[in-house]
Design a protein around this nucleic acid. Structure first.
Length: 575
RNA sequence: CGGGGUGUAGCGAAGUUUGGUUAACGCGCCUGCUUUGGGAGCAGGAGAUCCCCGGUUCGAAUCCGGGCACCCCGACCA
């Protein structure tokens, strides 16, 4: 491709809208342009990378025996009503009506559609296991689109669905996907971390996320510094603190005027926050009040809490609600006397504490020497803490550390969540009807482009891994008007053509500096320069974008040199 | 939806506080000449409903009211 023909404008100045480095580079290198918040066009360079990533993913999916299909993006509401997600899906689902006033949505995901297909097509155990996938546009009216293509409202996703006869089959499919994902991400030049995750609105039991560590990431990942334990902070478990011993003392009321926060209380009583127990009041969707007890220095993990209580609409109670429940203003809540009025959830750490401090449900008063069992009885005891750096690992004696990551893939064991609701069944060997066991597996293809750039760039621009670079070589023609150089370029291009090497030829009537800057910004793995010097020496300058190493080679050796930089066969993923 | 911020040419951006002729400047774009190994120089040129609607005023980018869009922080997620 000649640069003079390529539909591409690079930007010298950084667009004000872009915050993260990857987003800036995608805009500056002319890969994407914004149409509206979270809605982007892919231009030739961006689209080529998108296609290369798709092809890598496609190859890895096909290698597991999965088959590619294409499902409709426009989906009738009936299917979603059947699975129960039409109302639960919330505002994130983009809904519309057809001319006959029938409800439709633009597919945010395809569990319903595929399950509908399967229930019509699959009859016998002989048709299972089955894995189907598609690479297609998804629509989600995100609360807040951000960071360009990292979180957009219209995006490209690979979604695969597995259908098995039993749990063992599901485990097998799940493990195949795990391995295939690992391979696909590796081939894309990404570093990834696999973490335990919360299944969220998709539902199901087990789920793992593939995270690309990056400062631009939206998720906090908790990793053990010793063993392999890693989890999304939403799902991270923590080993419970060791029990305190000693006799239970008499509970007493202490007057604490205007002392509302844990830090004020710690100062007032001259005790560390670890000796206090915070009582947070939540309200669920049904209006039930929930008192959550947690050690003074900890934060509640609302994801774990919501899951524990099996309610999605968990929110912190308003001051008036708290006062109505406890009889005291905010800051003086405690568990004693709340048993009848609220569900009492106690973090497992608290059960190990003796003689702690809580609010007295009375203005300007706290209790000291409170003890579980004697002074109040919990309804639920579980780990509801938010993990943080320094916490003990749940699996070994190591400690946890926090890291940011971009969620690029997520695999779920759905079980019968959809197949049961939509009656997708098969007949087993004995002629008995069985519910199909399902799994689903997503990769954010367009997000991957951004994640790869986040992990592969420097101050000058993108540093593409060879496998996903829009082209392999950026040829700089120093003097476009010079016939001698033009002839060398023709020969060079001919050797690249016959070697399957993809290139952009910068034949623009620009000064060399402009071309070098654009070459670095666009970030193809190899830069080849032909100028007056090459005319004398008969050599091409070949430079590796990543290492900055430069070599002068003959025209005959150029293709081989390029291939060695590209990493042998790894680059052979052409569009 | 809550909190913070921004809207002036394709991009960056001054002017807005304190209303006043033709709305700066830089980049990019077009023409010409010179130049040509790390974002060239000179000369000329095109390009702006100053986000939208309404109001105040002799006069509004600027003041007032309403709306919209976009960005950042939180909840959601590939």
């Amino acid at each position: 491709m000649r640069m003079s023909n390529l539909f591409l404008t690079t930007l010298r100045e950084i667009p004000a809208e872009a915050e993260t480095s990857g987003h800036r580079l995608m805009l500056r290198a002319g890969m994407i342009r914004k149409l509206a918040a979270g809605i982007y066009s892919f231009l030739p360079l961006g689209y080529r990378t998108l296609e290369k990533i798709s092809n890598i993913v496609r190859q890895e999916m096909n290698a597991t025996g999965a088959q590619e299909i294409l499902l409709p993006a426009l989906q009738p509401a009936e299917l979603w009503q059947e699975s129960g997600r039409w109302f639960k899906g919330g505002k994130e689902v983009i809904r519309l009506k057809d001319r006959n006033d029938r409800d439709f949505c633009l597919g945010p995901t395809h569990e319903e559609v595929i399950t509908d297909l399967i229930r019509h097509e699959v009859r016998s155990y002989r048709q299972l296991p089955l894995m189907l996938y598609q690479i297609q546009t998804k629509f989600r009216d995100e609360l807040r689109p951000r960071s360009g293509v990292i979180r957009s409202r219209e995006f490209i996703m690979k979604d695969l669905y597995s259908f098995d006869r039993d749990r063992e089959g599901l485990d097998e499919s799940y493990n195949k996907m795990y391995t295939a994902y690992d391979a696909a991400f590796r081939r894309c030049g990404l570093q990834t971390l696999v973490v335990e995750a919360d299944p969220g609105m998709i539902g199901g039991t087990d789920s793992m996320e593939f995270m690309a560590p990056s400062d631009a990431g939206e998720d906090i990942v908790i990793i053990c510094n010793t063993c392999k334990y890693a989890a999304n902070r939403e799902a991270a478990r923590i080993r419970t603190a060791t029990a305190e011993n000693g006799p239970e003392k008499e509970m007493e009321t202490v007057l604490t005027p205007e002392v509302r926060t844990i830090s004020q209380l710690a100062d007032f009583l001259n005790l560390p926050a670890e000796r206090m127990v915070k009582t947070l009041i939540y309200r669920n969707g049904e209006g039930r009040m929930i008192a959550v007890l947690i050690r003074g220095d900890r934060e509640v993990n609302e994801f774990k809490l919501a899951k524990l209580l099996n309610s999605s609409e968990l929110i912190l109670a308003e001051p008036e609600e708290i006062e109505a429940l406890t009889g005291a203003p905010v800051g003086f809540s405690g568990p004693v006397g709340l048993e009848e009025k609220a569900t009492i959830v106690v973090d497992s750490d608290v059960t190990e504490m003796r003689n702690f401090v809580t609010g007295a449900n009375e203005a300007n008063a706290h209790f000291i020497n409170v003890n579980i069992g004697r002074d109040f009885s919990p309804d639920i005891i579980d780990d509801v803490k938010l993990a943080r750096s320094g916490d003990p690992c749940p699996k070994c004696n190591g400690f946890l550390v926090e890291e940011r990551g971009i969620e690029i893939g997520h695999i779920f064991k759905l079980g019968t969540r959809y197949t049961e609701a939509m009656h997708a069944v098969y007949l087993d060997e004995t002629g008995t009807e069985q519910t199909i066991i399902m799994g689903c597996y997503g990769i954010g293809i367009s997000r991957l482009v951004a994640a790869i750039i986040e992990q592969n760039h420097d101050e000058q621009g993108i540093v593409w891994p060879a496998s996903v670079a829009p082209y392999h070589v950026y040829i700089v023609q120093i003097s476009p008007g010079d016939e001698g150089q033009a002839e060398m370029i023709r020969q060079l291009c001919a050797t690249f053509d016959s070697s399957g090497i993809e290139y952009i030829l910068d034949d623009r009537d620009e000064r060399p500096g402009v071309k070098f800057k654009d070459a670095d910004l666009i970030g193809l793995p190899v830069r080849a320069v032909i100028g007056p010097r090459s005319l004398e020496s008969k050599l091409v300058e070949i430079k590796c974008r990543r290492s900055s190493e430069e070599k002068k080679v003959s025209l005959a050796d150029a293709a081989m040199e390029v291939k060695s930089i590209l990493g042998g066969d790894a680059f052979v993923c052409t569009i």
